[in-house]
């Protein structure tokens, strides 16, 4: 009797847990489902069919219209986003790893000061930097160029913080000593011994910096006026601000949004094991 009662209450609490999880998942996923169903609709179906129903299949036409708009400017945006985020994250992750490794494992003058300044850098709001960065860039005459967006986004103080944690956890000091005994220089030791050991951490930094740059909006908004240099986010924002006057932009904005989101979701799903273990390593200080 008692046992049955306990089983019953366990069963109820188990169902309650799953109800909570289902609700959280619906909240998280339904807007994305809406994005998928909406990008398959024509402008007419968009306002006449239900939000999550499929109308007439129109995705092909929508993508075609999107790619044709303004002489294919969307493709420019996609390529730009890939360059800003792809090259930026690769280079940024390498720079962070080198610095984090040096702070964790090497002795050099100013090491503590550098780490302290880096930690403060994590807390500086981007809003506070936008105006001075813009004015400095205009003095260097690089406003409205690739570099005005690319260079500031390379700076990733949080990446250095993570890299230091990974280096401390993953690299035994004896290994570095052994490498030095073999006559390898410090730089070579970093690239051949330390970097491979830090790999899950480096992949995590890379992925999150990629997302950070891909999703960034404020800096391009401030720096760029030439649509050919826009990343996807800024381009879609510009189109969306015309929607009230010109409803025909709606399918473009929605289909463009879907195409901008899909690569990131795929990356997170495919690289799941990597970033999960990377986050785990980072949380153990």
């Amino acid at each position: 009797m008692n046992g049955a009662h306990r089983n019953g209450s366990r069963w109820t609490s188990r169902s309650a847990v799953h109800v909570v999880l289902v609700l959280a998942t619906l909240y998280s996923v339904l807007p994305l489902v809406w994005l998928v169903t909406s990008s398959t609709k024509s402008l007419g179906d968009f306002s006449t069919t239900g939000a999550f129903e499929l109308g007439e299949w129109n995705l092909g036409t929508n993508v075609g219209d999107l790619l044709a708009e303004e002489d294919g400017v969307f493709l420019h945006w996609a390529v730009n986003s890939l360059l800003y985020a792809g090259v930026g994250a690769l280079l940024g992750a390498l720079i962070c790893s080198a610095c984090g490794y040096a702070i964790a494992k090497l002795d050099f003058p100013g090491r503590r000061a550098l780490f302290a300044v880096t930690l403060t850098g994590v807390l500086v709001p981007t809003t506070a930097l936008a105006l001075p960065l813009y004015l400095l860039a205009s003095e260097l005459r690089i406003v409205d160029t690739f570099w005005a967006v690319f260079i500031p986004l390379l700076t990733n103080p949080f990446g250095v913080y993570l890299a230091r944690a990974y280096a401390e956890a993953a690299i035994p000091g004896e290994l570095l000593e052994a490498s030095r005994m073999d006559g390898a220089g410090e730089l070579r030791t970093f690239f051949t011994v330390a970097l491979p050991l830090m790999r899950p951490g480096v992949v995590t930094i890379l992925l999150f910096q990629f997302v950070g740059i891909w999703n960034n909006f404020f800096l391009p908004l401030v720096m760029l006026t030439d649509p050919k240099l826009f990343p996807i986010t800024l381009g879609l924002y510009q189109w969306s601000s015309r929607v009230t006057q010109f409803p025909s932009y709606t399918p473009l904005v929605i289909t463009g949004s879907l195409l901008a989101v899909v690569p990131l979701i795929v990356a997170f799903v495919v690289l799941q094991r990597q970033w999960r273990s990377g986050l785990a390593a980072g949380s153990v200080k």
Binding site: L106, A128, I151, L187
Partner: peptide, 28 residues
């Protein structure tokens, strides 16, 4: 050389931090 190497590893980030965070804050 041994003292130079850590600085080489640190320099790219230190320069970025200087140019894109510290100088802008001072300028602001």
């Amino acid at each position: 050389r041994a003292r130079l190497a850590p600085l080489l590893l640190v320099a790219p980030f230190a320069l970025l931090l200087l140019a894109t965070v510290l100088v802008p804050i001072g300028y602001a």
